[in-house]
Design a protein around this nucleic acid. Structure first.
Length: 991
RNA sequence: AGGCGCGUAGCUCAGUGGUAGAGCACUUCCUUGACAUGGAAGUGGUCGGUGGUUCGAUCCCACUCGCGCCUACCA
């Protein structure tokens, strides 16, 4: 990116601000200043307000989702902090067991090693080192976002304190029977060699086959045909099931079939589970390798034959697989005891040791050769894959630890039902309930090394002692055996989400009843995406209610997920990832392409990604700065689900920053070194003209007069303040952003600043009037900066430092200033009406000028006709404004009945604003303009009249609405008549 | 199969039972001393479709079409 080198990095100390806003020059310096002064810490005063940061993966990098999420939280926290509350934004990171372990294992792989080469202790050391090295990255990135987290309280899920909480919860749940160990089918990842929970399995439709296999019925010449998507599992079949009502097969129930290739005989059983309509109506039952079959197997007491090893290869003899000890468990870490030799008897040697897909191919070929393959059909099926490894997950019979979730879920449902926790948007409660009411037990053990070791010890007999420490476990064992026995701790670790579930109270010191816990728990709001409602939100609620004695948060604000400009989820493999820091700092096209195509899992996609990137970012990404990015996020924070991130938006908000910056420059240029009268009282009822009347009140400095423009902008400031306050309360950051944007741009800059120029450059203006203008300029800006600070912390701070003293404010930083409060007394409806009139007049004149293509430099004479006394008063007070902003050469008031020259006309109420036709205005152009105006009016009149001609409308609609409609027609008709007259006159003119 | 959401200007999105909005893009004009990252003016929408409720529907209801997400699944 091409940044003109900024000459003065410390612009706050320069005489003037740079002409263009340069975020780089200010952001880091300001953040360091805030942090080093401890401004992010709770003040210890006022009502408490606490937000828990959803802890990102410690070895991860900040992505758009984090940036969005943190922008919202920071806005909330800064808002409350400025309102004087005792705010804590608790930061920290998550150890992300599987993900982190995978990263380190991949590093080892590059060195030609596995974790087993290192051994458990050395491997964990290595992970800690990696964590130390990379773990700071994401928190540094949060700092770039301006996040005002209390870094002095930063936590990590593997910290000693948090680990203690994990153990405590595990032990207590176990004591209550809510954690148990059991052998059942789990989702097994054959690549990572660990169990995973239901939530970590992603099922997507893929193309596969449906194979119809013939199983000969023993003692007959018949055979049954079973349909299966996984023919290789037939080796583990222990029955064939049919629907008990199925007439085709009723006679076979209780008979036996011969399982091909193995020679085993298995029964034909009847079970309702079988759908007569699907496939052949016969289902092979493989209880050890299918969740449904497992249930059937249990119902019918079928044997369960496990045919896979932990890598999902067909079990083989130790000679083929030396790591498997004979006669013992297939994998020691599983504590699964199979009689391997017996199992092997069932499996033909030809298949032993084959990978599941190779075995499938072989088995199909062999069955076909024996004439036992009836047919093969293409079939779409949902294939379950591990969310980390992407490997097809295998239902696998192992011993694992589970949380019995139902009793916890019941309480967690209740707290949402009775309103102690509120979802925003409210609709997410449905999703929450739906899951909670159908919840399955949670498998929490993982066969990996990085994580919280399960606090359970085994003796030689397999007795389990769950305890907080090894000493405590030994004591328990001693109590049982009457003597000391050797114990071995469970080798498994806990699911990372188990520790995340405790985050809201473990970070505050639980199980110790710390002052922090007392002050900040329950926290106020959880801000997160809907993708982790089940993973995290639901589990936090369960654990919080169970152990911390109250809900973990009172509100859950669920926001959308950030997607790319085409609505696609951002992912490394799609190559459409945007790095928030690249939006802040900018990046060249080449660097962006390099970034997107490096370290890819599927390098063949690189070309495609490069093409797409070149198309979307032909010039790379310019540096937009943090505030622009944050404001963009705020403006996109609607209640919808998807947030399409469009570069056009951020560019617009970067421009907004520049606009604000330059408005400040203007204000400073016109107030610094001047008496801004900030200490002077104001004559309350005073609404003088821009030039002033010299009737202001004497004050400490000079007297100050405020005119209608001043009162108007102050009124608007207060109204906007109210709107923003409401929007933040409702989590409508988009509306808040919209309010601030249009106030600053369309009102403060487009109108007030222009109006102020008139006063400040008017040689006839009184000192009091100029002081009033300066005072308003600087005070409104100062308040607006405070108002916007939670959304754009850096630019507001930088400007505030300069502006605050001029506005009579003292303070180290804007972030600790009071948030603007609505001052109802400052709202002045008369001034609002007057300025609306002024702006309408000016707009009317500009409109004529614009349509007639009159050069902005050219001044035009303006006449006012058919005006009321009211109009006259307005004009007299605001004559100079109109003259300057509409570039009027002269302003002439025509009394009622006095004839006006042939003119182009704009209507302000009943009053006509006229610009005489002449060399400046083309007759044809004016006729066209009039025609357009008239057509608009006619359309409205037709609509309104048809309404009024409906007797039902007049009879039944509220009186107010009818009257309003009548008034509208009247106004339109008057206007139309005026324009018609005008049209006739213009049309009659020569040329 | 069940649940949820979306469909409004070329694009990204607000919105309300009574006059349809913003930003970007586009057109014309303008280097005026805060800002060309700017200023002034302007073009542009049968609010997915059908029906119902209502004096009145973009909004509420029913159905329908299209798109997306989530949960559970038939071997």
């Amino acid at each position: 990116m091409n940044h003109p080198k900024n000459q003065n990095d410390d612009s706050a100390n320069e005489a003037t601000l740079n002409k263009a806003y340069d975020p780089h020059a200010i952001e880091k310096r300001i953040y360091q200043n805030w942090e080093s002064h401890g401004h992010f810490k709770p003040s210890g005063e006022g009502p408490s307000y606490c937000i828990m940061l959803p802890p990102p993966n410690v070895t991860g990098v900040l992505h758009m989702g984090h940036a969005f999420n943190q922008t919202i939280m920071d806005a909330l926290i800064r808002h409350r902090r400025m309102k004087g509350e005792n705010t804590l934004w608790q930061p920290g990171t998550d150890h992300a067991g599987i993900a982190t372990q995978m990263v380190v294992e991949r590093q080892l792989q590059a060195e030609g090693k596995t974790r087993h080469d290192l051994g458990r202790d050395d491997f964990i050391d290595r992970v800690w080192k990696w964590k130390e090295q990379s773990g700071g990255a994401i928190t540094q990135q949060s700092r770039r976002m301006g996040a005002s987290m209390d870094w002095s309280r930063e936590r990590f899920t593997m910290d000693e304190g948090l680990s203690k909480a994990v153990t405590e919860v595990f032990v207590r749940l176990h004591e209550e029977g809510l954690i148990y160990r059991g052998q059942r089918l789990v989702n097994w990842d054959p690549v990572l060699h660990t169990a995973v929970s239901d939530l970590e399995v992603i099922s997507e439709e893929e193309n596969g086959g449906l194979w119809h296999l013939r199983y000969p019925v023993v003692g007959t010449k018949e055979h049954l045909v079973v349909a299966t998507t996984r023919p290789e599992t037939m080796l583990g079949d222990t029955a064939v099931a049919v629907n008990p009502e199925d007439e085709r097969y009723k006679h076979l129930i209780g008979k036996q079939v011969e399982l091909p290739l193995t020679g085993r005989k298995i029964p034909v059983i009847a079970d309702d589970y079988v759908d007569k309509e699907f496939g052949s109506g016969c289902v092979k039952i493989t209880p050890a390798h299918d969740f449904n079959d497992y249930e059937v197997g249990k119902r019918h007491n079928l044997p369960m034959i496990n045919i896979f090893d932990r890598s999902a290869q067909i079990i083989s003899r130790p000679s083929n697989n030396p790591s498997t000890p004979i006669g013992q468990s297939i994998d020691e870490t599983l504590h699964v005891t199979y009689d391997l030799l017996k199992t092997l008897e069932h499996i033909p040697v030809a298949y032993q040791g084959l990978d599941r897909y190779k075995a499938r191919k072989q088995i199909i070929a062999d069955l076909e050769a024996q004439g036992l393959l009836e047919k093969t059909e293409p079939h779409k099926l949902k294939v379950p894959r591990g969310d980390r490894s992407n490997a097809v997950v295998e239902p696998f019979l192992t011993d694992q630890w589970y949380v019995k979730v139902e009793p916890l879920a019941k309480e967690a449902i209740k707290v949402v039902e009775d309103g102690r926790i509120k979802f925003v948007p409210e609709n997410w409660t449905k999703t929450y309930y739906q899951w909670m009411r159908n919840i399955q037990d949670w498998c929490i053990s993982r066969q990996i090394w990085w994580g919280h070791r399960i606090p359970a010890w085994y003796d030689a007999d397999g007795n389990i002692f769950v305890a907080r420490t090894e000493t405590e476990a030994k004591a328990k064992a001693r109590a049982k055996h009457g003597k000391d026995v050797a114990l071995e701790q469970d080798k498994d670790v806990l699911d990372t989400w188990f520790s995340s579930a405790l985050w809201p109270f473990s970070t505050l010191g639980w199980p110790t009843q710390t002052p922090e816990l007392k002050t900040f728990y329950p926290t106020n709001v959880l801000v997160t995406g809907f993708d982790i409602i089940f993973f995290w939100v639901a589990r936090m609620i369960m654990m919080g209610v169970k152990f911390a004695g109250d809900v973990p948060f009172k509100e859950v604000y669920i926001h959308g997920l950030v997607r790319d400009a085409e609505g696609q989820k951002m992912s490394k493999s799609k190559g459409n990832v945007l790095d928030p820091l690249d939006l802040i700092d900018g990046i060249t096209l080449d660097d962006l392409i390099a970034k997107r195509t490096s370290g890819m899992m599927q390098p063949q996609l690189a070309k495609k990604i490069e093409t797409a990137t070149r198309k979307h970012f032909p010039n790379g990404i310019p540096a937009y700065g943090t505030d622009a990015l944050r404001f963009t996020f705020a403006s996109l924070a609607t209640l919808g689900r998807d947030i399409k991130f469009d570069l056009g938006r951020i560019e617009g908000y970067r421009n907004f920053c520049n606009k604000l910056w330059n408005a400040a420059r203007y204000v400073l240029m016109n107030t610094e070194g001047h008496d801004c009268g900030v200490d002077s009282p104001i004559a309350e009822s005073d609404v003088p003209s821009p030039s002033g009347r010299g009737t202001g009140v004497r004050g400490a400095t000079g007297a100050v007069e405020l005119n209608a423009a001043d009162h108007w902008i102050i009124t608007r400031l207060n109204e906007v303040t109210q709107e923003v306050e409401t929007a933040i309360h409702d989590y409508r950051f988009d509306l808040a952003a919209q309010e601030m944007y249009s106030f600053i741009w369309d009102e403060y800059c487009s109108w007030y600043l222009e109006l102020s120029k008139v006063v400040l450059t008017d040689p006839k203006a009184t000192a009091e009037a100029q002081r009033g203008t300066r005072r308003t300029l600087v005070q409104v800006l100062e308040a607006a900066l405070r108002l916007m600070h939670p959304f754009m912390p850096f630019i507001t701070e930088e400007i505030w430092q300069r502006v605050a003293p001029l506005a009579g404010k003292k303070g180290e930083t804007v972030m600790l200033q009071p948030y603007p409060a609505v001052d109802k007394a400052a709202i002045n409806d008369n001034a609002k009406k007057e300025m609306t009139w002024v702006m309408q007049v000016i707009t009317g004149i500009r409109n004529i000028r614009g349509e007639a293509d009159i050069s902005p430099a050219k001044q035009v004479p303006v006449l006012f006709a058919d005006g009321s006394k009211h109009d006259h008063d307005h004009l007299e007070r605001n004559r100079t404004y109109i003259q300057t902003l509409a570039k009027a050469e002269s302003i002439t008031w025509l009394d009622q009945g006095k004839s006006a020259p042939d003119s182009a006309t704009a209507l302000v109420g009943h009053m006509k604003v006229l610009i005489p036709l002449g060399s400046l205005i083309n007759k044809q152009a004016e006729l066209e303009r009039l025609k357009k105006e008239m057509e608009k009016l006619e359309k409205e009149i037709v609509k309104a009249r048809s309404k009024l001609s409906n007797s039902d409308f007049v009879a039944r609609a509220p009186k107010q609405v009818v009257e309003q409609e009548q008034q509208r027609v009247k106004d339109f008709e008057t206007a139309l008549t005026n324009l018609k007259t005008q049209q006739t006159k213009v049309a009659a003119l020569p040329q």
